[in-house]
Design a protein around this nucleic acid. Structure first.
Lengths: 93, 93
DNA sequence: AAATTTGGTTTATAATATAAACTTAATTAA
DNA sequence: TTAATTAAGTTTATATTATAAACCAAATTT
């Protein structure tokens, strides 16, 4: 049986990746609302995805407030697609 | 976003359930080989699935050797199907 | 009859996820 | 104008989970 990439096999990280697959970019606040996660948890999981090179995180300013914009990288896109493929073999989709 | 049943969102338990979805029953040794897990890990995860009522575990004898036969329950089948549905929304399949 | 294998279970440890507490800066209320 | 509140995060501590190592009992092989 195929391995399921453990970095993607996590509810919150998968949700984030899934969102980023379908959108140009998304900021911290949006991801937090969409996934209904706590800020702390989201922060940690975004770090992990960024460390793996699956997403890029740009910290900037929107007016006077900080804004963290995330987008998926090519590596992340590929990993996500492979993960989906592996899952297919488990779920026979 | 839909919740992913955490009992099913685990590589080994998902693999076991996936196997049991497609077969009348499977014994411990078979599951261990198919999933390439250690006996200890498999034992623990089978217990969890059984405690949740997702599988039934029959401990008997095959000749002189012990044999643990597992099969999926109706509850388990339903849970698996719901899990797959939830995943679809993440993966847009 | 000792050593090894089979089919497991229990328990300890490592990894992971999650939330709680904290930080810094901006905004609003008193 | 300063005290309280909110916003946007990060860090750290804790709870949960997964995994493997150690163990056990019975059968088999040497």
């Amino acid at each position: 049986m195929k391995e399921l990439n453990p970095l993607l096999h996590s509810q919150l990280r998968l949700a984030v990746m899934s969102i980023l697959m379908n959108v140009e970019e998304a900021d911290f606040v949006y991801l937090k609302e969409k996934t209904e996660s706590t800020a702390g948890n989201l922060s940690v999981q975004l770090d992990k995805l960024a460390s793996a090179g699956y997403i890029s995180v740009e910290k900037g300013m929107s007016g006077k407030r900080p804004r963290t914009a995330c987008s998926i990288t090519e590596l992340g896109r590929t990993a996500f697609e492979e993960y989906v493929d592996s899952l297919r073999s488990y779920l026979n989709l």
